[in-house]
Nucleic acid binder design. Structure first.
Length: 946
RNA sequence: GCCGAAGUGGUGGAAUUGGUAGACACGCUGGACUCAAAAUCCAGUGCUAGCAAUAGUGUGUGGGUUCGAGUCCCACCUUCGGUACCA
């Protein structure tokens, strides 16, 4: 009997649905285990072969845990709000809800195809009002709370108001952006609007000015993704930064806890390091500099107060609030011109630029509080508004960027740190002896910093402060397809929260998804909707993508609950996620936001754990090969361009697109060349469909020694995306080879964490393995199993596999599991094993990897229940005892021979036997033996003097 | 730029704690079966020299530590992910 996956798989797929095999209960005496995948955004391109990589790994783990007696929560859902659906709606008029649902249906089919053990009764969709009701609810909690630094937790805003009523804000210790100190009486006299403004400076969800990418020509706000070099990616229109009132989340309030609690997590060191660096805690001094001729002071933050005698100028972020006031009439034109230039620059551009610094003098001077010198105030794009205070004291002698800046603009440089005692130390190292610094002279940097903290506080010009690189999260989007804010403004502009019974606030129906005038969200045009509460206007911005994805893992615990986002009982049972699998691209963004939300919910007593994801594994990305004609000509440019890199360096994206040659790989020769004949064949058969330019005069043809015309194709690895025509659909692979084969092949490709290019080259090997495995159970006439007792060798083969596979699953090394299965089946085939006592446990062992074929064989062996409800085989070490060991014998670390020896031998006995080897005699003869290193059961190394 | 990761045969990769580099596959070469093909099976396969035994060499590059380094240390190169509005 032959193995035919298509029949087997469709049969069991149906059976598992009918028997609700993967539905699990919140009511169980078994220990719980929560295995979670980062849920997908349902894009129009459907799933590609990269998506299931992590899902397969987590599915294997979930199944493995189930076989080991755990009640496993393994859900799936959709991150369904997002930009692409809205763009599609603008282009085609199809409502985002409609296209999203279509995409979800497609995703579901594709997922079902692969045989995952998801409990679909818990499916969530972030764009569903029954889901986003709770996203809005959590937002309201954030709005109603502030962060009390005394209690180190979120506290209801009513308590803060009570404090203001009683004693003003002078004793309030809270995460805030409030500058002004007021008394109880002053508070009581404030208008509703003034009170609202002050409370905004404390709320965890608050409003402040933020900057957006404004594109005048498109009349809309663009995502960073849609902006390239200051121009819109679509159309190439100029883009500028524009200030807008935006909602923000005060995640910086949680910075310290986000940092400290990393220690409790089983995440990779790399991932923790990324989070730590993102939070970017630093200790330093907050200082105020007097401004010559102004009564305002300039606030700066520095980690190097010891270098203040070298502070010869100051630099402000171009967006700094004081810029208009400080700029003198003489410098006005220059400053305005500079601001215009900076407006077109992205943050990455601004930080990445090292060779060329830019800046402009404001005309104003500050007073260095220690040297009492007038130092010029400049603007520079390398200072960012949101980092620190948006202003620095520049010490060109001890900071790389300050040095370059001073060099370019001819500013004074005073050496203040002598590093001659520390050869090899760079400017970034905080070491050396202070010089040219009055009372600090002769001190080590470390001591000088401590001394300065004291002096600054005594002089009342500042204080010691902890600063974080982490910034509050911008929470407003001027878009349609996101969660509406449950916020309405009254005539004075005071923000009022909707009541809980008014949730969910659903999106209005629209036909036109173009932005409203002034870059407002399309919601602004739904006037009835905006004005649905008398005398109030609803907020028209919507929430960002991370809103729904910051808490979805909690909803899975009790997905159908209409009264709470999840019941206390469900949350107490499932607690947190035991294993989270997803891509590194989420290493900071999503994970930081989720952790913050979770901590906030913990403060409210809603969740029992301080962290949401106990263990996290990053799967690598599956990339695709991209093919580009090496010598390009462009549609409207006649010059030849050497290669794709030169083209990209030119960044002239409006000339034409690089000539991408989709799916050309079969037509290339060994040197990645394509001949003219092959190219014509390729173009006719394949290229045409993928917008490849067919006109052969557009390509630069070289001639080889046989006068054959060809050009070379650059092969690169890149992300899979619809726009690159390199998407590989898992359905095609499943149709051809079966889901079991697809699952195992994805695992076989390489280590889960590494990124790797997709290629079906090796898939035949996995298919052969499955056929071979199947053939152990059958001969020509049918099932052929023996009930005889297995031999010692057969036991050894099985238990070697049990050990290796359990260990490798535990350490998420699934590629080596597949190899181990291959070795096991090859060996069993070699000894022609058909013993039930061997093949039965083997079937359970393989079930997490290949759920269909194992279910079929399990049933055929006469079992009533599912193999997926069986017990994982128990490893018994007694089957692996080895009595002989093959020792490698090296002379000076170089292997010269091997020898089989009894495992019982002592070091002396081994040495005696090894010395008798011909190879050893040959190399040792006439030389002095200095040392013989014997590691029992491992190796022998003889060290001789040459 | 900054933060993080990865570089091993023709290809994907293995080597878990510093101890036989290349497991397991793909591909390729030769053979068996066959009228033939597919499928299957057997043998070989890092590179160089050699009929062979064998020798030399070999884990991105250059140094170092060690009896012994793919693995540890230092410096560098290349590629990939993130860089706060793609998700």
């Amino acid at each position: 009997m032959q193995y035919h996956p298509e029949n087997i798989e469709s049969k069991w797929r149906k059976n598992w649905v009918d028997t609700q095999l993967y539905k699990i209960s919140n009511d169980s005496t078994q220990p719980k285990f929560y295995v979670l995948d980062m849920f997908p955004y349902p894009s129009g391109a459907g799933l590609h072969v990269g998506h299931p990589l992590g899902y397969i790994a987590s599915d294997i783990f979930a199944r493995y845990k189930r076989l080991n007696g755990f009640n496993v929560l393994h859900p799936m859902g959709y991150d369904a709000f997002g930009l692409p659906a809205e763009q599609y709606a603008i282009q085609t008029g199809v409502h985002p809800a409609v296209s999203t649902d279509e995409n979800i249906v497609r995703y579901r089919e594709q997922l079902d195809n692969i045989g995952f053990s998801f409990d679909w009764s818990r499916e969530v969709k972030t764009s569903d009002p029954s889901y986003y009701k709770w996203t809005q609810w959590i937002f309201l909690q954030l709005f109603h709370h502030y962060y009390d630094q005394g209690q180190d937790k979120a506290v209801h805003i009513d308590q803060l108001i009570a404090t203001f009523e009683a004693e003003g804000n002078k004793n309030v210790k809270a995460a805030n952006t409030q500058d002004e100190i007021f008394t109880s009486d002053e508070w009581k006299q404030k208008t509703a609007k003034q009170k609202d403004d002050i409370l905004m400076n404390y709320r965890l969800a608050y409003r402040k000015t933020g900057y957006v990418n404004w594109c005048e020509a498109l009349g809309t706000v663009l995502a960073n993704d849609e902006v390239k070099d200051g121009f819109s990616e679509r159309g190439g229109h100029p883009v500028e930064k524009r200030a807008m009132m935006q909602w923000s989340l005060r995640i910086t309030a949680y910075a310290e806890r986000l940092l400290n609690d990393l220690d409790t997590l089983q995440w990779s060191d790399a991932l923790k390091a990324m989070q730590r660096n993102w939070i970017g805690r630093s200790e330093g001094a907050q200082m105020f500099f007097d401004i010559v001729g102004h009564d305002k002071k300039l606030e700066i933050f520095t980690t190097r107060p010891d270098t203040i005698f070298g502070a010869t100028y100051m630099v402000l972020a171009p967006e700094h609030d004081l810029v208009p006031q400080l700029t003198t009439a003489d410098q006005k034109d220059a400053v305005e011109k500079y601001l215009e230039y900076v407006g077109s620059r992205s943050e990455i551009d601004r930080m990445a630029e090292v060779k060329e610094v830019t800046g402009v003098f404001t005309g104003a001077y500050a007073l260095n509080p220690f040297t009492n010198k007038h130092i010029p105030i400049w603007l520079g794009e390398y200072v960012l508004k949101d980092y620190g205070t948006g202003a620095i004291m520049a010490v060109p002698s001890d900071d790389d960027r300050d040095k370059v800046f001073a060099g370019k603009f001819g500013l004074e440089i005073v050496d203040v740190v002598d590093k001659s005692d520390y050869p090899g130390a760079t400017l970034n190292d905080k070491v050396g002896k202070i010089i040219n610094s009055d009372f600090l002279n002769g001190m080590e940097v470390k001591d000088a910093i401590a001394e300065m903290f004291d002096r600054i506080e005594k002089l009342g010009i500042g204080s010691k402060k902890i600063n974080y690189k982490l910034r509050d999260a911008n929470y407003s989007r001027q878009r349609y397809w996101g969660e509406p804010f449950p916020i309405a403004y009254d005539k004075e502009g005071v923000a009022h929260a909707l009541r809980e019974d008014q949730l969910p606030l659903t999106l209005p129906e629209l036909e036109n998804f173009q932005p409203a005038s002034g870059g407002k969200s399309p919601l602004a045009r739904a006037e009835d909707w905006v004005g649905q509460i008398p005398d109030m206007a609803l907020e028209t911005d919507t929430m960002p993508g991370f809103a729904g994805s910051s808490w979805y893992f909690l909803r899975y615990m009790d997905a159908a609950n209409e009264n709470e986002f999840a019941s206390k009982k469900a949350i107490d049972y499932w607690q947190d996620v035991d294993l989270y699998v997803g891509g590194t691209e989420h290493a900071v963004g999503h994970l930081m936001y989720s952790r913050t939300w979770h901590k906030f919910l913990y403060d409210l007593g809603i969740v029992p754990t301080i962290e949401p994801f106990k263990k996290l594994v990053n799967q690598g990305m599956i990339t695709a090969y991209g093919y580009y004609a090496e010598n390009l000509k462009f549609e409207d440019e006649s010059s030849l361009i050497g290669n794709i890199k030169d083209f990209e360096a030119k960044q002239n994206i409006h000339v034409g697109s690089p000539i991408r040659l989709a799916y050309i790989n079969e037509y290339l020769d060994g040197q990645n060349r394509i001949t003219k004949g092959k190219f014509i064949e390729y173009f006719e058969k394949t290229g045409k469909q993928y917008n490849v330019i067919g006109d052969s005069t557009k390509y630069h043809w070289a001639k080889d020694e046989n006068s054959e015309e060809y050009f070379t194709v650059n092969v690169v690895q890149e992300k899979m995306s619809k726009s690159k025509y390199n998407v590989q659909n898992p359905d095609e692979v499943v149709a051809k080879y079966g889901a079991d084969c697809f699952r195992m092949y994805e695992m076989f490709l390489g280590p889960l964490e590494q990124s790797k290019p997709w290629d079906t080259k090796g898939i035949d090997g996995v298919q052969k393995f499955l056929r071979k495995y199947w053939s152990l159970y059958y001969n020509e006439s049918g099932l052929n199993l023996s009930n005889d007792a297995p031999t010692a060798e057969e036991y050894k083969i099985l238990h070697t596999a049990i050990k290796k596979i359990s260990e490798d699953i535990e350490r998420f090394s699934f590629n080596t599991c597949v190899s181990a299965f291959m070795v096991c089946v090859n060996e069993l085939k070699r000894v022609e094993c058909n013993k039930r006592q061997i093949l039965e446990p083997l079937t359970i062992l393989l079930a997490p990897f290949a759920p269909f074929i194992t279910e079929e064989l399990w049933a055929n062996m006469g079992h009533e229940g599912s193999v997926h409800k069986a017990q994982f085989p128990h490893f018994d070490a007694k089957h692996l005892v080895q009595d002989t060991i093959e020792y490698p014998v090296s002379i000076n670390g170089k292997k010269r021979d091997t020898i089989m020896l009894s495992a019982q031998l002592t070091q002396e006995e081994i040495q005696a036997q090894v010395m008798e080897l011909d190879q050893v005699k040959k190399y040792v003869e006439g030389k002095e033996i200095q040392k013989v290193i014997i590691v029992l059961k491992r190796m022998v190394n003889i060290v001789v003097k040459e």
